[in-house]
């Protein structure tokens, strides 16, 4: 299993896609879409990050062990943000007698 070499053409296509996505995310930011503004901006950013990880960082051709480590890293970031927000966003929603706050 020798190293897979990505052709230059692929890098150029990915670069162009990243540029187009950057232009789209800037354009979308000026329209009033309510909560969709945040979702669009983050959706495009995640798409761009995936392109960089899969093609520029060669994770597409990496071993299964490396893929697990990559996925675990971002999964734990989601845990960090998710569990933190599950606290902050629910404060004041539950009030029980005899408890503080």
């Amino acid at each position: 299993m020798s190293e897979t070499i990505t052709p230059v053409r692929t890098y150029l296509v990915v670069f162009l896609a990243l540029m187009v996505l950057t232009a789209i995310t800037v354009a979308v930011a000026f329209f009033e879409l309510g909560p969709l503004n945040d979702i669009a901006a983050m959706g495009i950013a995640i798409t761009k990050a995936c392109l960089v990880i899969l093609y520029f960082m060669h994770v597409r051709h990496s071993s299964r062990l490396t893929k697990v480590v990559v996925v675990a890293g971002f999964l734990w970031l989601l845990f960090l943000i998710g569990f933190t927000m599950s606290d902050y966003l629910t404060r004041g929603m539950i009030s029980m007698q005899g408890t503080i706050g």
Binding site: V26, F30, F31, E32, N37
Partner: peptide
């Protein structure tokens, strides 16, 4: 997007 874009609308 987090610093420059969100809130522009």
């Amino acid at each position: 997007p987090l610093l420059y874009l969100l809130g522009r609308n």
